[in-house]
Simulated scan of single mutants.
Amino acid sequence: MISIGIIGGSGYTGGELIRILLHHPEAKIDFVYSTTRAGKPLTTAHPDLQGGTEMTFAGTVNTNVDVVFLCLGHGNSTQFLKEHSFSAATKIIDLSNDFRLKADAKIDDKTFVYGLPELQRSVIREANHIANPGCFATAIQLALLPLAKEHLLGEEVHVNAVTGSTGAGVRPMETTHFSWRNNNVSWYKPFTHQHLGEIGESLRSLQPNASTPYFLPVRGNFARGIFATCYTRFDGSEAEAKALFDTFYKNAPFTQHVNRPIHLKQVTNTNQCHVHVHKHENVLLITSAIDNLLKGASGQAVQNMNLMFGFEETMGLNLKASLF
C-alpha cells in the first residue's frame, strides 16, 4: 500500500484523481492539500464523493508520502516545487504543462519524463518524476504515433478536435458559462495551442522529419471528452494502415483500434482511447476519442503511477463508459 498526496484537489482533475484513488487497492490518500479549503470536507468541492469519504482538505503537506500528484494550474507547479521540498524517495506526477517539453523537463535535481505510456512505457517504469501529457496532446498523439513510427506522416497533417467544457477547468469563464456554451460551437487558439510543442516532440522522436500538425481546437457544448479527427496523405491501402495500428497498440491496454466508426460516448468516464482509421482516395483519416479528465488527465496519471510502482497497469482504472 502506497501513500498518496494530492496538491490542488478542489478542481476537476483533483476530483477525478480522488475518485479513482479512493478505490485503488494499492493506494491510500494521505492528504489533499488546499490553501483555500483547509479543514473543509472534500465533499464541499466534490459532492459526487458524498458517502464515499469523510476526508477533509489539509492545510499542510506531508513531505514523506510515496507519491505526490500536482493538480495545479499551468505555471504553478514550478513555483510550488521551489517553495516545497519532498523526500528523496517521493515520486512526483505533474498534471500541468510545466515540465512536458524537453527544454523544461529539469528543475533543481529533478528531471521529468514525458508520461505517455503508449510511447514510453519502459522509461516511465524507471522514472521518479512524470510530466503527465495534455488532454488534446494525448488524443492527437495516439492518432498519429503509429504512422510516425513507420515514417509515414505526410508533409502536412491536419487536426480538428472538439473538447468539452471541463477542459477549461473549474473556474468559471465567459466561454464555459452555460448560457454561452449551450447550443454553441466555436474555435480558439487556431494553430497555436500550447499542446502543439509536446505533440511535435513526440512525433519527431519516432519520425525526425515530422512536421507539427495544423491543429484547430473547438469548444463543444458538452461537459467532458475530446473527439479528434486527423488526416494526412497516405499512399498505402486502408488495410495496411489498420495493420499498423493493430501492431502498434497490441500491448496497450487502454488504446483500442476499432474497425467501425467511433463516437465520444464510448470512452466518456473511462481511461480508454478509441482510434478508427478510414482511407479516402490518397488521404488517411484517423479519428480518436478520449475522456479529457481521465485518459487526458487523472486516469493517465494513475496509469503512470501504476507503472512506476510495478502494479498492474490497469489497476483501479477498469471503468465502464455510460452510453445512456
Rank of each mutant, 00 (worst) to 15 (best):
I2F: 07
G9M: 10
G9W: 01
G15A: 14
L17C: 06
R19P: 10
H24G: 10
A27D: 04
L42N: 03
H46V: 05
E54F: 08
G59M: 03
N76D: 11
K82P: 04
E83D: 11
A88L: 09
K91E: 03
N97A: 05
F99Y: 02
F99N: 03
R100F: 01
R100M: 00
A103L: 05
D109F: 04
K110L: 13
E118D: 00
R125G: 02
A131P: 07
T138G: 01
L153G: 07
T166H: 07
A168H: 15
V170H: 13
R171A: 15
R171M: 13
T175C: 10
T176W: 05
F178D: 14
N182T: 14
N183T: 09
Y188M: 09
Q194H: 15
G197T: 03
E201R: 05
N209V: 09
A210G: 12
A210H: 14
P217N: 13
G220P: 08
G220F: 07
F222Q: 13
A223E: 14
R224V: 12
I226G: 02
F227G: 00
A228R: 07
R233P: 05
T247Q: 14
T247Y: 13
T247M: 14
A252M: 09
A252K: 09
F254Y: 05
F254S: 09
V258P: 00
H263F: 15
Q272M: 12
V275P: 03
H280P: 08
N282R: 14
L284P: 06
D291Y: 12
N292R: 12
N292E: 15
A297F: 03
G299T: 09
